[in-house]
Each structure stands twice: as structure tokens, then as C-alpha cells.
Design a binder for these strands. Structure first.
Lengths: 156, 156
DNA sequence: CCAATTAGTTTACAACTGTAAACTTAAAAA
DNA sequence: TTTTTAAGTTTACAGTTGTAAACTAATTGG
């Protein structure tokens, strides 16, 4: 199913999801153990989060007998991509490039990742504009968030 | 001041911030007008968000007479970078590369942005590992979220 | 100087989040 | 088959977020 994109996953839910994605099929017991060891969550906490994720359709219980197992109902990569794109969508378009740079700098990437990114960039360069317009204000109020000094107020 | 990084800005606050960052110094009146036109917010809504942002130190009121003006107390680029890095920090390290690719693909980047990214990647390639380890489970429970099929459960 | 008008401050309130206890089955052990 | 234990379901509860009304204190227009 591809209805996933809209499932909003919160910070703590994200933690649980990662375990489910990684194990592909887990019992609540395993999840409780993992989250206890990893975040010191009380078992009830894991149970609650598991329940919420099931309700919002991010996890599906499988099996017919009592100790059910749980499997992800949304893909990890797709969820990550959506979350990342969404974040960038709410920030100034003009500064996205630098933000991406910050992310890359903060992270370890494999040779393959780098190659893929270089590939994409090279392709993108062919049609890239000289400059990306700032989209921080409603049309008409044409201002640009990068004009001049990035001042940060008084106390300096 | 550089204590900024930790100021957590919520989704709607982000909208207001963008206007403040762009205008550099605004009156509440201008903000109210902008947010009304851009998000159909009631004036009280803008007032509340402005107040909350002041309280959490993201905006500073300036002036001594009554109609104060407001200026950002944290830098836009730094805030964006922090938000983006934070998001990636909570997702699987092994899949960050693809997520970055998704962001790049979803976005318009300027020639300069692309050049900068290529520069960074080239540098990073020199010491990049063959593979980035999955960090989704607590140490010891060594599993890797990318082993085999990215199945998405039943209903297909 | 008094009345309108604004700008700024409090209060409101439901939904969502993080965190967890309590309760109710169903399964396993005795 | 009775008791224990583990799995699943409800309820709880404070703090945050989105949204906004109400109230108070300055400003400004007469």
C-alpha cells in the first residue's frame, strides 16, 4: 500500500518504529525489552506507543493467536524521505542548499551514498537556476530573507 | 549570542519566524497582517505566537515606546541547520544518504548550492567508509535495518 | 481631557505527546 | 482447573501546540 506518506510519526514513536523496521516482525515483548534497554521506558510506555502506531496505521499486528507479532505498515525509507522533505518544505527555499550541506557535514555517508548524491547533483546542475528565490513572505510583499547582514539582535 | 541552537521552534512558530527573519525588524501590526494574508490567522493567534517566541528567546522586542518592533534573536540559517540535523539524528544512519537524496530531488538548488555540495561531497569521499552501519537497535542486538526486502506487510 | 483605537497581556481550550498506572483477558504453570 | 503470568486494553495526567477570545494599558484623534 502506498497511502503511507501522510502517517505522521512523532519523536518517540520514531524510536519504536526503528526497532520494528529493523526486526521486520517483533513481539511486544521484544519491543518492550528493547525500549527499556534503549530508553528506559516503562513497559506500559512501549505498549501505549505500539497501540498508537497501530491505530494510526504505521504498524500492523499479525497472527491469530494471543501473543501477536507486529510488522511495519509503512516503509522506513519512504517515511524518512517524507519527514525530511516535509521539514525542508517549511523552511526558506533560498537557504535549503546550506541546510542540506549542514546535514551532509554532520553525517557519515558511504562511498555509495556519496556517489549517488554526486550523480544527482550533476544531473541537477544542468538545469539549476542562478539563484533560488526566497519564499518567506506572501507574494507581493517581495522581500528576500538573505539580503544583507544576518544580524542577530542586540546583546553582542 | 550563540546559545540559540537549543531553541525549539514549532511548526506554526516557524512560519512567524520566517517573516521576522525576512523583514529583520517588524511591528506586531505587520506580522499580524502578513500572517492573516498568508495563513488566515486571527490577529490573536499571531500575538500569541509572537509572545511565545519572545518567551523562548527566539525573538527580541526592541524600542522603548509602546509600539515595539521585533527582531530575531536566533539566526535563520543556524536554526534551519539545527532542525535538519536534529531530524536526521533521529533516523537510521544507514538510510540518511537516500533521505538527503530525496530532499535534493524535491528541491530547487542554485548553481552555487550545487557547487558547494559537490565540493563537500568530494572532500567527504576521501574518507568515506564503504558502508554506514545501522544504528537502529541498542548495541549488542546487532541487526541491520536494511538486510533484505523492504516488505510492507500484508495487504498487497 | 475624553473617547476610540491599538498594542500588548491573560485566559481558554481542545488535540496531541510523553510517560505510565491500572485493569482485563488469555495462556502457561502448577 | 486453579493460580500465576504475560499480553493486550483503558484510563490518567501533565506539558505542548494550534487557535483564539477577552481584557488591560497605552496612543491618538477629536
Amino acid at each position: 500500500m502506498i497511502d503511507e506518506q501522510q502517517v505522521a510519526i512523532t519523536d518517540s514513536e520514531w524510536e519504536l518504529m526503528r526497532a520494528v523496521w529493523t526486526l521486520k516482525r517483533v513481539s511486544s515483548r521484544q519491543l518492550i525489552t528493547i525500549m527499556e534497554e534503549e530508553r528506559q521506558w516503562a513497559d506500559s510506555t512501549t505498549k501505549t506507543l505500539l497501540r498508537r502506531l497501530i491505530k494510526k496505521g504505521a504498524i500492523t499486528p499479525v497472527g491469530d493467536a494471543r501473543p501477536y507479532d507486529y510488522v511495519p505498515a509503512v516503509q522506513e525509507q519512504a517515511s524518512m524521505d517524507a519527514a525530511a522533505v516535509r521539514l525542508f518544505d517549511q523552511m526558506c527555499a533560498m537557504r535549503a542548499g546550506s541546510a542540506v550541506a549542514a546535514v551532509i557535514n554532520s553525517r557519515e555517508l558511504s562511498q555509495a551514498d556519496i556517489a549517488q548524491l554526486q550523480q544527482i547533483l550533476q544531473e541537477k546542475a544542468k538545469t539549476a537556476p542562478q539563484m533560488v528565490a526566497c519564499n518567506c513572505l506572501p507574494a507581493g510583499m517581495g522581500e528576500n530573507c538573505m539580503s544583507e547582514g544576518d544580524d542577530v539582535d542586540g546583546q553582542r
